[in-house]
Design a protein around this nucleic acid. Structure first.
Length: 106
DNA sequence: ACGCTGATTGTTCAT
DNA sequence: ATGAACAATCAGCGT
């Protein structure tokens, strides 16, 4: 194991509370679950017809972990690729900031 | 140097 | 259009 996350993810079951305060918020990349859900969404719904989002959502999460590490690998790979995408915006964001600063200095 | 928190991402479903 | 469980993330900031 590389390392252990000794914290319960900020422990906040709030909700999609976002709304950044940055000018061009470099929204991070998607996560492995996003890609996994993209592929499994139809599969899960296929095996669980009639299940409302409540069930599908939970089942989806259960199956997600049900996969083997190498099974999630492709999704993680996408997540990594997506993160790269985010890197680009984050970089542009940093640069834009520096640029704005320069302008501000002007 | 170290760790935490917050912000974000997409699905489905209903309203 | 948005919210909510489901999971990952991980980059920036503060101490």
């Amino acid at each position: 194991m590389p390392k252990a996350a000794a914290k319960s993810r900020s422990g906040k079951a709030e909700k999609t509370r976002r709304q950044k305060k940055d000018p061009n918020a470099p929204k991070r990349g998607l996560s492995a679950y996003m890609f996994f859900a993209n592929e499994q969404r139809d599969n899960v719904r296929e095996e669980n017809p009639g299940v409302s989002f409540g069930q599908v959502g939970k089942i989806l999460g259960e199956r997600w972990k049900a996969l083997s590490d190498k099974q999630r690998a492709p999704y993680e790979a996408k997540a990594a690729a997506d993160k790269k995408r985010y890197e680009d915006e984050k970089q542009a964001y940093n640069q834009a900031q520096a640029d704005a600063e320069e302008e501000e200095s002007s």
